[in-house]
Write a protein that binds this DNA or RNA. Sequence first.
DNA 1: TGGTGAAAGCTGTCCGACCGCATTCGCCTC
DNA 2: GAGGCGAATGCGGTCGGACAGCTTTCACCA
Lengths: 225, 225
Amino acid sequence: MSEGRVADRAYAAIVRMITDEKLSAGDRLPSEARLAATFGMSRTIVREALARLASDGITEARLGAGSYVKRRPSERLGTHLPMDEMATTIGTYEVRFVLEAEAARLAALRRSGPQLEAIERALEQLRAALFSHAPAHDEDWQLHRAIAEATGNAAFLPVFDHLRDSVVHILRAGVDISRSRPPQVIAAMMEEHDAIVDAIRVRDADGAALAMRWHLSQGRKRLMP
Amino acid sequence: MSEGRVADRAYAAIVRMITDEKLSAGDRLPSEARLAATFGMSRTIVREALARLASDGITEARLGAGSYVKRRPSERLGTHLPMDEMATTIGTYEVRFVLEAEAARLAALRRSGPQLEAIERALEQLRAALFSHAPAHDEDWQLHRAIAEATGNAAFLPVFDHLRDSVVHILRAGVDISRSRPPQVIAAMMEEHDAIVDAIRVRDADGAALAMRWHLSQGRKRLMP
DNA sequence: TGGTGAAAGCTGTCCGACCGCATTCGCCTC
DNA sequence: GAGGCGAATGCGGTCGGACAGCTTTCACCA
C-alpha cells in the first residue's frame, strides 16, 4: 500500500484525526492500544508516532492518564496558543530572512568549485531523504549550512549553528506535517531548493537571494497557513 | 539511581560511547541487541534512543546493516568554535551589515516609547564615554543591543549576544584607533549614531537601515583604511 | 450527601518472535 | 589460483503479549 515506514502513516493518521475530528488543545486522544487497533498496526508503532508528535510539540503523554493534544498542527495561530512560542517562530524567520538571503547572495558570488559540489551533494541528500520518507529536517539544515559555508565568510557559520536548535524543531514539524499533505507539497519544497542552488551555480547573486527569500516565505506559509 | 526515563539514559550512554571510543562519521555502532545487553536494558528502549539520535542527525539506521555514526555529537553540542582569526572577525561585518540594518529597520517600525527611551539613554551614555577618556566600546555595544531589543523580536538578541565577543573586539579597536586621530573623527562617529537614533525616533525604517549601513561601512573603513 | 477505597484504564517498560534485507564467506566453476 | 555465485548469518523493522506503577473513575459505605 503506502510507501514509507509504518510510523509515518501513524503520524499522518493521528494528525488527520486531530484536524478532522476538531480536537482542541487539552483534548484527550484515544489510548495507544485503541489507536493501534483502529489503524491496524501494533502499539509499538503508535508509540513511535506519538513520541515524534510529542517531540514536535503537538501532543503530550501523561503517565497513567493518556495522550493529550497540546497544540493543533494546522491552527498554529489559535488563541489559546502560547504567543511566546509563536513570536519566537516568527522572529526566527525574520532573522533567517536577512541572514540566509545574504548568505545565498554571497555564496553565489564567491562559492568555489568544491563548495558548490558540497552544496549539490547536500541537495541530493535532501532530495533522497524527502522522497524516501526518511526524516529530512537534518538534511534540510545541512543544505542551508553548506550555503552559509560557501560564503567564504567564517562568521556566518557560528551564527547559523546558534540558530540551529530553534530552527530544527520547526523544520521537523514542517516536514512531518507536509508529509501528511499531498505529495506536490514535498515537490514544491524541493523545487524551491533547486532554484536556490541553480542560482548559486550560475553565480546569480540577486537570483539566489530572491530564491532564498521565496523559499523562506513559502516555508513560513507551510507552517502557519 | 539516575532519574528520568530509561531512554534518556540510553541516549546519553550512546553519545558517551561515540565520544569516548572516538568513533568517527561512518563508523558502525554495535547492534541494537548488543547495546541492550551492554546497558542492561531492553531493545525497545535502545531503539527509542536510536530513533532520537537519528532524528538529531547523529546516527543513521540502515536496514539489515546496522546503525552508523553520521556526525559526531560534539560538532553539534559544542556551541561554536572560537573565532580567533582576525580575518574571520572582519567577516562579522558582513553578518552585522544585514543583521543590524534589519534590526534598525524593525526598531524604527516597532519601537515602543520605553524602548526608545532606553535607546536614547544608551546614546547619551555613549556620548559621555566617547568624549571622556574612558573606554567606550561597551557603551557602543549597549546602544546596538538596545536597538536590537526594540525590534520586539526576541530572536535577534541571542544572535547579537553570540556575536558580542567578536564585535566588542572590533569596537574597542575602532574606538582606540579613532582616539589617535583628530577629534572630528570621534564627532563623526557620534553623528552616525545620532542619525540612526533619529531615524528610529521618527519611525523612518529605510532611513534607519541606511544610517546603520553607513555607520558600519564607516566603522569598517576606520578599522581598515 | 460526602468521602473513601477498590477497580479499571493508561503509559512506561520489557520480552520473545518473525520477516525481509545486507553483508559475508565458503563453495563451485573455470 | 582467481573470480563469481549462492547460502548462511546478522541486523533492523514490526508485531503481540505481559507486567508494573500511576491516574482516574465510580460504586459503596458512613
